[in-house]
């Protein structure tokens, strides 16, 4: 069965680039433009992986992650932050909130692929 990846980012361009990369890796891809939309998506079905921006309107990535990890089955998706926030404080906060990996933008396909592989995401 195909693995599902949810890309959460308020930039349509980033979503488009990320979609192409994760689809090349063999995932099916869904998109959400903020944390709230992502939360609603996860209420319907849990994806296998979530690529998550930090700064978004309505609900930020970190707020979404905290809410996700409290949901039934919310521990199952592997969450990879993908953000311009590139300081140690943000990284530590994300990992404490339950993120599995952390990508500092800008990214390329190799970075995404290697981060996915490290946390055992092989579609």
């Amino acid at each position: 069965m195909l693995m599902k990846c949810l890309v959460v980012d308020d930039s349509r361009v980033v979503r488009k680039v990320a979609r192409r990369i994760v689809e090349d890796l063999g995932f099916t891809c869904d998109e959400a433009e903020d944390g709230q939309k992502a939360y609603e998506f996860c209420q319907g079905e849990m994806p296998d992986a979530i690529l998550l921006d930090w700064n978004m309107p309505i609900m930020s990535g970190i707020e979404f992650l905290e809410k996700l990890r409290e949901m039934d089955n919310g521990g199952s998706p592997k969450v990879i932050f993908c953000t311009t926030e590139n300081d140690m404080n943000h990284i530590q906060r994300a990992i404490q909130a339950g993120a599995n990996e952390y990508i500092m933008k800008p990214f390329d396909s190799e970075i995404i692929e290697s981060k996915f592989a490290q946390i055992g995401l092989h579609p």
Binding site: N86, I91, Q92, I95, E101, I103, I111, S114, Q118
Partner: peptide, 18 residues
Amino acid sequence: QRGLPIQLLMKYFTQVDG
């Protein structure tokens, strides 16, 4: 970010000049 798990970055690196 190439191949280095974030946990090891947190443990064994410090950020310099951002």
